[in-house]
Design a protein around this nucleic acid. Structure first.
Lengths: 141, 141
DNA sequence: TGCAATTAACTTGTATGCAAGTATAACAGA
DNA sequence: TCTGTTATACTTGCATACAAGTTAATTGCA
């Protein structure tokens, strides 16, 4: 099998490269890459339900539960009951979580810029375009 | 945080999309996507050491050990001592493993074609080019 | 109203991915 | 030869992914 021509192999390694890069950058905040992104999503969206957050972050509920567990243990979020629907919960950023989410957004933005410095404007556009097309078309099955 | 503009988010979701696609395709062989790729690498490279296989597959030795454990349990490979260097092992495809590796190569090739049908020739070239550039440049640090 | 179908969050089990550390073997230089 | 360094495979611990299944609450429809 020629790994160079295997799109699955290339996508996996590209992801792993980006993930290691971001993980290293957000480690200064003692966060993982996924935790930092979740806090980033919560920065402007307090009081969302777990289900809504899962849709935004495109994460499975099983995965999200574990991530929220760790963010709650770390004191960044609280789970609160939703009086409108007692099946669901509201996720609330604590004071500590609010300031951490702002830091996360900042570090992620910086990491994006630094990571993409390698590419010229055409390449950046191509990459985002192709990924968007793959992801969009795959929903049309 | 705008996930559309976050390259780390987009790479992660593109990878997950591809990985789910391939996983579904190779599930007919009762393999995971990674197991199928490892068998694919072994198809023409019998008797490699774990270390060499790890370099080809760009996998951590900790990760590879677990994958080899499962391939060995399933009867596709055997670990054999390397008389030339008693620290290392030779990985040997069994008869069952040989035929499975050929099936894996076939299914992966078909999955590649099907997955990339979404893109035109320019887009396929752009995607592979940009990933190659990201991966190559990142080794120059 | 009553009940089947659906939904939300969680749990369990399995498979990577990776950092960190271990034991053994090989190697390189004094 | 002796010793410090390096290399190989493995182990441990933790964090995603995700399939499958559970429980409780809500909804849709006859």
């Amino acid at each position: 099998m020629e790994k160079v021509d295997c799109i699955f192999f290339q996508l996996a390694k590209a992801y792993q490269l980006g993930n290691r890069f971001l993980t290293q950058k957000v480690s200064e905040l003692n966060l993982t890459s996924v935790q930092a992104m979740i806090l980033g999503f919560l920065d402007h969206e307090d009081q969302v339900t777990s289900s809504e957050l899962g849709k935004r972050a495109e994460l499975d509920s099983a995965t999200l539960t574990g991530i929220l567990d760790r963010l709650e243990t770390a004191g960044f979020i609280e789970r609160r009951g939703n009086p409108d629907d007692r099946r669901s919960i509201h996720i609330h950023l604590t004071k500590k979580g609010k300031s951490m989410s702002r830091e996360a957004v900042r570090v992620i933005a910086e990491a994006n810029t630094e990571f993409l410095q390698i590419l010229n404007e055409n390449e950046k556009r191509d990459l985002l375009h192709v990924i968007e097309k793959l992801r969009y078309e795959s929903t049309r099955s």
